[in-house]
Design a protein around this nucleic acid. Structure first.
Lengths: 218, 218
DNA sequence: AGGGGAATGTTCGGATTCGGTAAAGAGCCG
DNA sequence: CGGCTCTTTACCGAATCCGAACATTCCCCT
């Protein structure tokens, strides 16, 4: 959350925390942008009016960098222009001040449910370290450079990056990527992992868990 | 849209139509539910207070049937309970009366942008590289020269260009272009893609994603 | 610390699948 | 009937997948 008024910040933090969310607070736009990139939160709550970088600008820069973390705006100005601009920017929702904390929590949950829901997550670009993966466009970039992956390679990487840190066994990957009717041997997974690693270069996001399987970095 | 007050219904229909949306109106919940299932609209605007079946109930039944068509609620009661219930139900957004028609349109557009795989929604001409496509006039030009496409060919290109970069599987294209009851084989898509490419000439905007489907250049 | 064994990385060519293309049949409408 | 479009099919070249064999790394046991 990025909010410069302590009273509001405390209130929101209280309610979000009570609802089970971990909350990180920054007080100006630049710090918020840096924190969002560093901490990779599940969602951002941004005040539009912020000292320095405006909330809309923070959102725009995140989106430009391929970061589609859900963003919810707080705004005091209840006029349409802000609403339209906010949503057209790629934000996911907004709440106008004065707002009830309970409503904000409900909206955060609603946004998370939307983005965690089956098709939404698979359609949303994922970022792990220097690697970004866009399921809709089926494109991958490593350290900013586009990477050309074959269909199987892409699906494999997408599967791993869907849950960063989670370790998948070769059998799970065969079932999830190749499909249940797959007749390929488990060593085939190794070969494709190697191929993806080679194409990603030094930004190899895939970690081997000896005796278990593979995982994308968290 | 399902709305029982004619004044509001007319207003909303006017603004949505002016923005390029086709609008179908029903006046009670049961009819709305049936229409949604029959017409498969890109989005539903539902009043919460409806004679017979309430809007929330319509939404719930749609969701239970696995229908995740975007739903936007209209509600007169601006209290939290409705908000929470509405969003937790699986709705995508809501607007409280009195609302401005422009805000409603903006929210509809925002919701459609969020939902993946949404078919063509904007009536404005689309430009991708040297190719321009005008949905209203159903005309296409490549490098300035007009191109004569058949109906199916146009719909196919329009569907791809509606979301440049987004990769569509052959099944998605069959569903979106040919219709939900299409019985054509997937290779039919290939043939039409080839036709469009031939007519567009060297400005072939359609890219093949081997093992997956097709996409328009971003 | 060293050796054995297992798991993983790497390489490479045949086999398979996939998509482009052409052509022909089917349906539609004037 | 004649032209147009859509659909299906067959064939071919090319991308890519699979698996085996070999090389390497890591773990565990003595």
């Amino acid at each position: 959350m990025v909010e410069d008024e302590p009273a509001i910040a405390d209130l929101v933090r209280l309610y979000l925390t009570r609802d089970g969310f971990g909350v990180h607070l920054e007080r100006d736009g630049a710090a918020g942008l840096a924190a969002a990139r560093r901490l990779r939160p599940v969602a951002c709550v941004l005040d539009i009016a912020l000292p320095g970088l405006a909330g809309t600008e923070v959102c725009r820069r995140l989106r430009e960098a391929g970061d589609w973390t859900p963003v919810i705006f707080l705004t005091a100005r209840d006029d349409e222009v802000d609403r339209v601009v906010g949503l057209e920017l790629g934000a996911d929702d907004y709440v106008t001040k004065p707002f009830s904390p309970r409503e904000l929590v409900a909206r955060v949950r609603a946004v998370l449910r939307r983005t965690a829901g089956a098709p939404a997550t698979t359609e949303r670009p994922r970022v792990v370290g220097p690697v970004t993966l866009d399921p809709a466009r089926r494109t991958v970039t490593a350290a900013g450079a586009p990477v050309q992956l074959t269909s199987t390679e892409f699906d494999l990487l997408a599967h791993l990056m869907a849950r960063p840190g989670r370790v998948f066994t070769r059998e799970e990957l065969l079932a999830g990527v190749w499909g249940y009717a797959a007749h390929a041997g488990t060593r085939t997974v190794d070969v494709h992992v190697a191929q993806v690693r080679a194409k990603l270069g030094p930004a190899s996001v895939i970690r081997t868990h000896r005796g278990v399987g593979y995982a994308a970095d968290a």
